[in-house]
Design a protein around this nucleic acid. Structure first.
Lengths: 195, 195
DNA sequence: AATTTAAGCTGAGGCACCCTCAGGATGTCA
DNA sequence: TGACATCCTGAGGGTGCCTCAGCTTAAATT
């Protein structure tokens, strides 16, 4: 019923903290290299730790992904707050979206996890996703209030567009990166037509 | 060097054909239910066949996916040709895109495979993807020639938008389907602004 | 410093899936 | 009715997931 998501926390004992950090570092490297489905046993051995230790700190793959991406996404939310203060709401929105796409495609498979977490509470990343949702919605509302973005666009739709762009970027990992242009097309598509 | 993609073909002996068909039917069902990463051993046993037999007919998962989706995509290409003859090139393009999104998201994981195959020869689905690329490019060119779609849009970009929409649809499998609206936004975004 | 104890660590082991291949079965053609 | 090419089988080795019983150790207590 309550389906509490497991959020990994830095353990109390010194050796525990050491291992926690080592695992996280190894995981970031492995995810970057092999995507979100990198071998957990590889990550453990890369961190110089037995597999059981990894599972002690991060009982599920999702928990590990969440921990590995938390910082980046926190920054994204923080940056949104800074942008809100800026002069041009459309510039703020587009800048934030560009940045979001980059973060969403940090490694292969991440967008899918985030998209899943967005509307599924009981997922480790849900909290962070909700925060991003709020940030994006605020920026969107501001741009709409300024009459710069079509008023019928909902935050959910904005995130679909964002995720789509991130997914395209993720696919194109090797070679051609269509995501910049993708986002440009989308942005030009949703801005109001008074140019 | 030549990296010939393996395209499964219906075998000569009667028992071979029987099994080939049974496997294909089981695969379609399994992919629909569990996505492109459904268990091949399950598919084999569902088809009443040993695992080695499955591998005989479809040496890789990609080959099986290709065979399982060939018909649908062939229809898509055929439909494009019929649409080309129609009166309104923009209607033709949008109708085709809508249909394409549906086919691309027949089951979870397919868009990714197709997006990969699009520019990677030596993949079983590459041939079919190229055919679709041509179809889409033709429809796009026609709509652009009629001045209905922004002239700087390339076929590659069109497919990125298409794939993005299909991916969103695939994600939303359970519950909310954002892809219709996604495609609408994209389409309104790329049409020329004379309304 | 010795004791206690809770936090942490280990890695074997069961399970699922992947893919191969040697040996056996059988459809087909003459 | 051979004879042969095609086809089928399923055990087996490899990888990865995840658990858990037993051991180790940091740190709090006396």
């Amino acid at each position: 019923m309550d389906a509490k998501p497991y959020i990994a926390q830095r353990p109390k004992r010194a050796d525990g903290r050491r291992n926690y950090d080592a695992i996280l570092a190894a995981a970031r490297k492995a995810f970057e290299a092999s995507g979100a489905d990198a071998s957990l046993e590889d990550i453990a051995s890369q961190a110089g730790v037995a597999i059981g230790t990894l599972y002690r700190h991060f009982p599920t793959r999702a928990a590990l992904v969440e921990a590995a991406t938390r910082d980046g996404l926190e920054n994204l939310v923080a940056h949104a707050e800074r942008l809100t203060a800026g002069p041009d709401p459309l510039d703020a929105l587009t800048a934030w979206m560009r940045e979001a796409v980059v973060h969403f495609s940090t490694f292969r498979g991440l967008v899918g996890i985030l998209a899943q977490s967005m509307y599924d509470e009981g997922t480790p990343s849900h909290a962070m996703c909700s925060a991003m949702h709020r940030s994006g919605a605020d920026l969107l509302r501001a741009a709409q209030a300024a009459g710069r973005v079509r008023p019928d666009l909902t935050p959910e739709e904005l995130f679909d567009l964002l995720s789509g762009a991130a997914w395209v970027r993720e696919q194109a990992a090797s070679g051609r990166d269509g995501s910049t242009r993708f986002l440009q097309l989308v942005l030009e598509g949703i801005t109001t037509r008074d140019d």
